[in-house]
Design a protein around this nucleic acid. Sequence first.
DNA 1: TAAGTCAGTTAGATTAATCTAATTATATGA
DNA 2: TCATATAATTAGATTAATCTAACTGACTTA
Lengths: 254, 254
Amino acid sequence: MTELLSSTVEDYLEAIFNLEKDKKAVRVKDIAQKMMVKLPTVTSMLNTLLQKGLIEHEKYEYVELTEKGLKVAREVDRRHGILRNFLTNILKIDARQAEEDACKMEHAISSVTFEKLVQFIEFIEMCPRGGSEWLGYFEQYCGGGYRKEECLKHMSGFIEECIRKLEKAKSSKEVKVMPDKQLKDLSPGEKARITRVTGRGSAHRRLLDMGVVPGSTIEMERIAPLGDPIEVMIKGYHLSLRKEEASHVFVEVS
Amino acid sequence: MTELLSSTVEDYLEAIFNLEKDKKAVRVKDIAQKMMVKLPTVTSMLNTLLQKGLIEHEKYEYVELTEKGLKVAREVDRRHGILRNFLTNILKIDARQAEEDACKMEHAISSVTFEKLVQFIEFIEMCPRGGSEWLGYFEQYCGGGYRKEECLKHMSGFIEECIRKLEKAKSSKEVKVMPDKQLKDLSPGEKARITRVTGRGSAHRRLLDMGVVPGSTIEMERIAPLGDPIEVMIKGYHLSLRKEEASHVFVEVS
DNA sequence: TAAGTCAGTTAGATTAATCTAATTATATGA
DNA sequence: TCATATAATTAGATTAATCTAACTGACTTA
Ligand SMILES: [Mn+2]
Ligand SMILES: [Mn+2]
Ligand SMILES: [Mn+2]
Ligand SMILES: [Mn+2]
């Protein structure tokens, strides 16, 4: 079904995808500039992409991704974003290097491994034994000044408070039987767990493809004036959803 | 200085390196089999490798890595091993997939990012807030049965004991002024931190290239009858050192 | 030692991704 | 509207990595 595409092909799709986000129309020249190649190289690649049904393009006209091309591009872009965030936020690699490495790694990881990595990143971020505090100790470790006792003692102070808070939250939840909320009801900055994604057909598929699946953690970033579009962070990756799309997503605040 | 080699070239070097470890002599056929290509492909690649000074090879004869080729191959193999271990031990990817992904990722990561990842893996393994116990909770998280309280409470029980143990170790260290040990003095299974790597020249360089650098954690695996070779685990990667090499490595048991 | 087998090489083709040089189309502006 | 500049395409070459088919060398064995 899913023919495998070379990493070069994936990178061109990614480039076109990003140009479409920035500008209205994508020209051959723009792609050449972004990919740092000459114009005939792009023309040649466009024929390849056309052949594979990934873009629409007529001689001397603008370039557009097809539904199929868009799907691939979105997935590549998602991987790129998640890997870049992992490298910058967790490993603390500098932005330029993280960008470069992410754009190579995005083609080298199988989807089963990638999704497992996504879960691991989520786990690091949400587990009270991990989190940004712990990552701070990782930096200390890299600098050579890490001391186990300090890390543990800090955890020790933190831990009782955490347990108390969690138990309180749990008991209040038991009483109230917290109902599902719609995604749009979250306020900016609020995090939730996706419980259901309703709907059918390609729109539904697109949501799942973007990582909007039950069980994932989602964070509201902002809602535009008329509730459209809605910007969210999911699996460490920034997404823009249309109001209609968001209406199919139900969440539970933890 | 270090010309960049294609990932294909790196994989051929890696294959030859592993064949050299297994068998006495490496034949064109062996390489073809391991790389899953036809014989003329190998002949052609051998010319490329010869040109680049990475192998020694005369028509119809066996293939051998040069010092230069060996250095590259060892580094690729090290990356491969560390990535595979990360994928299997931490992300719990199944062996076949981990092998495959590791062999692609090994070419996609810059050395600064890779070394940072190595440190992160080390940190996960050595920090008392991480470790295999914590990774168990990650598995639970993946299965959907993770509960923060349980993870925290377990930590809570564990933590006092840890702190007591650490403080005891610390105070006894302060009294005794623990002297440096030689690597060979470690007993199998014992872990230590590398404090010094003495010596000069290419032998010294080789040690550093293999990851035997001050600050790294090293674990003794076994010492052969006459103390040669010595097998150790460093940065999650299995290494075999000659007695002479090991004599330059000083460690501190933590 | 000559025949037969298998390993290895040579020759030549293919595909993907790039380039330069030359040509053609589109857009601008006088 | 026409000349010119800019964008895009076409043609043709190159390089890396692979293949098949044909040939050659080396090793074994009768
Ligand atoms: Mn890329
Ligand atoms: Mn990318
Ligand atoms: Mn590889
Ligand atoms: Mn490999």
